[in-house]
């Protein structure tokens, strides 16, 4: 564990608390893509199946359980408690275009052709693109509540911090590198670049998040 990874994980935790706070205080999930949230549940369940057969640390297990539980809870809030505030008609990204290629990629690129390893690879590839329905929705509506942009920023920071973490580990752990996680991670972080540009130039200057028409 190094500082980059710890701060990255904390940023990931923060993003979930920001999202929960947004939903609870506005009593609405407006502006949040159900599809992206459902993809995150898929990602966490597929990857953290290893809770049953691999123990890393208490920190690792607690975080995994938290990510599974909180992502399922968010789906529940969107689907039941605040269902009337969820508008599927603007959440139109076709996720089969993400799921198909991720299944294919995980069958080709994995560390061992076994059920658990293919699922692990699948979760890594799927996580890298899971934010696309959310970004697509943002693009479509052209604006977002400030709190929603803080959620996305925290999520983007989490991904960005994993990059120096990998560099640090490469140097300190004798050339250790995970090509699947690093490639997918770079792609994932890249997806946030446009968002970050608007976030830093507008939201952090006190303006509303609005995309040029």
């Amino acid at each position: 564990m190094n500082l980059f990874r710890l701060l990255g994980d904390l940023s990931h935790l923060a993003s979930i608390f920001i999202l929960l706070h947004k939903i609870q205080t506005t009593r609405s999930c407006r502006g949040i893509s159900f599809k992206t949230q459902a993809l995150y549940v898929t990602v966490f369940v597929a990857r953290y199946l290893d809770l049953f057969y691999r123990y890393v640390s208490l920190y690792n297990s607690v975080m995994k359980l938290f990510f599974i539980a909180s992502s399922v809870y968010i789906l529940y809030l969107m689907k039941y408690k605040y269902r009337p505030t969820n508008d599927p008609s603007i959440d139109t990204f076709r996720i089969e275009y993400l799921l198909g290629p991720c299944v294919l990629l995980s069958l080709i690129f994995n560390y061992k052709f076994s059920v658990t390893e293919v699922l692990w690879s699948f979760s890594i590839f799927l996580e890298s693109v899971a934010i696309l329905p959310q970004l697509f929705m943002l693009q479509r509506t052209g604006e977002a509540e400030t709190i929603t942009t803080h959620y996305l920023a925290a999520l983007g920071v989490y991904r960005a911090l994993y990059i120096p973490n990998w560099i640090y580990r490469y140097i300190t752990e004798d050339g250790v590198v995970d090509p699947i996680a690093v490639t997918a991670g770079l792609v994932q972080t890249g997806l946030y670049i446009d968002f970050f540009y608007v976030y830093f130039t507008k939201v952090l200057q006190g303006q509303k998040f609005e995309l040029p028409a």
């Binding site: 691999r54 640390s57 975080m63 990510f67 560390y111 973490n165 250790v176 995970d178």
Partner: peptide, 10 residues
């Protein structure tokens, strides 16, 4: 190298 990936990360 670490062929099995960094399964200690989240």
């Amino acid at each position: 190298g670490n062929g099995n990936g960094k399964k200690d990360e989240l």
